[in-house]
Amino acid sequence: MAGQEQQQPQSRGTEVEEDVPAAPPAPAEGQASAATQGVDDLLDEIDGVLESNAEEFVRAFVQKGGQ
């Protein structure tokens, strides 16, 4: 089983083509750009959430030892 899983990247690609033979490239690109858009939105949101002055904030986070 483990050995088979290792080879999946290639077989998976062909499976997708067989399952959806009529799929034109356009929707795939659309999905890709939608995904990129999602990441851009996410990063924009996180930009607004991140503490200001990253370097100082990270430097000041000093902990004492624990377990």
Binding site: L43, I46, L50, E51, V58
Partner: peptide, 21 residues
């Protein structure tokens, strides 16, 4: 995502902040 969008190297403080936050 940050590395690609902002061209950051692993040592950049913003990535350290993302890890912490």
């Amino acid at each position: 995502g940050y590395r690609e969008r902002d061209g950051l190297e692993w040592g950049h403080a913003r990535l350290g902040l993302v890890d912490l936050q």
